[in-house]
Simulated scan of single mutants.
Amino acid sequence: MPFTQCVINETLRVANIISGVFRRTVADVNIKGYTIPKGWKVFASFRAVHLDHDHFKDARTFNPWRWKDNNLGTSCSGNFYTPFGGGPRLCPGYELARVEISVFLHHLVTQFSWVPAEEDKLVFFPTTRTQKRFPINLQRRR
Score class of each variant (00 low, 15 high):
residue 9 N to C: 06
residue 9 N to T: 15
residue 9 N to M: 12
residue 9 N to Y: 13
residue 9 N to A: 07
residue 10 E to P: 00
residue 11 T to F: 07
residue 12 L to Q: 04
residue 13 R to K: 05
residue 13 R to G: 01
residue 15 A to P: 03
residue 15 A to E: 02
residue 16 N to T: 12
residue 16 N to S: 12
residue 16 N to F: 15
residue 16 N to I: 14
residue 17 I to Q: 09
residue 18 I to K: 10
residue 20 G to I: 03
residue 21 V to S: 10
residue 23 R to A: 04
residue 24 R to A: 02
residue 24 R to H: 07
residue 24 R to K: 08
residue 25 T to R: 00
residue 26 V to F: 14
residue 27 A to I: 13
residue 28 D to R: 03
residue 29 V to L: 07
residue 30 N to G: 09
residue 31 I to Q: 06
residue 32 K to F: 15
residue 35 T to H: 05
residue 36 I to G: 04
residue 39 G to A: 11
residue 40 W to T: 13
residue 40 W to K: 09
residue 42 V to A: 06
residue 44 A to G: 08
residue 44 A to F: 14
residue 44 A to S: 13
residue 44 A to D: 00
residue 46 F to S: 10
residue 46 F to P: 05
residue 46 F to T: 11
residue 47 R to E: 10
residue 48 A to Y: 05
residue 48 A to N: 11
residue 50 H to N: 01
residue 52 D to M: 08
residue 52 D to Q: 03
residue 53 H to E: 08
residue 54 D to W: 15
residue 54 D to K: 15
residue 54 D to M: 12
residue 56 F to Q: 02
residue 57 K to W: 12
residue 57 K to Q: 08
residue 58 D to F: 13
residue 58 D to M: 07
residue 59 A to H: 06
residue 59 A to M: 12
residue 60 R to Q: 02
residue 60 R to A: 06
residue 61 T to Y: 02
residue 61 T to M: 11
residue 62 F to W: 12
residue 62 F to V: 08
residue 64 P to N: 02
residue 64 P to W: 03
residue 65 W to P: 00
residue 66 R to H: 00
residue 68 K to M: 04
residue 69 D to T: 15
residue 69 D to H: 14
residue 70 N to L: 12
residue 70 N to Y: 15
residue 72 L to W: 07
residue 72 L to T: 06
residue 73 G to K: 06
residue 74 T to E: 08
residue 75 S to K: 11
residue 75 S to P: 07
residue 78 G to R: 02
residue 78 G to T: 06
residue 79 N to T: 09
residue 79 N to Q: 14
residue 79 N to A: 01
residue 79 N to K: 11
residue 80 F to Q: 07
residue 81 Y to E: 01
residue 83 P to H: 08
residue 83 P to E: 13
residue 85 G to F: 05
residue 85 G to N: 11
residue 87 G to M: 00
residue 87 G to P: 10
residue 92 P to S: 09
residue 92 P to R: 06
residue 93 G to W: 10
residue 93 G to E: 07
residue 94 Y to S: 07
residue 95 E to M: 09
residue 96 L to M: 13
residue 96 L to E: 04
residue 97 A to Y: 13
residue 97 A to T: 13
residue 99 V to I: 05
residue 99 V to H: 06
residue 100 E to D: 09
residue 101 I to L: 09
residue 101 I to P: 06
residue 105 L to V: 11
residue 105 L to C: 08
residue 106 H to K: 11
residue 106 H to G: 05
residue 107 H to E: 08
residue 107 H to K: 15
residue 107 H to M: 09
residue 109 V to R: 12
residue 109 V to M: 12
residue 111 Q to H: 14
residue 112 F to H: 04
residue 112 F to K: 00
residue 112 F to R: 01
residue 112 F to Q: 00
residue 113 S to T: 15
residue 113 S to V: 15
residue 113 S to M: 14
residue 114 W to F: 12
residue 115 V to M: 10
residue 116 P to R: 13
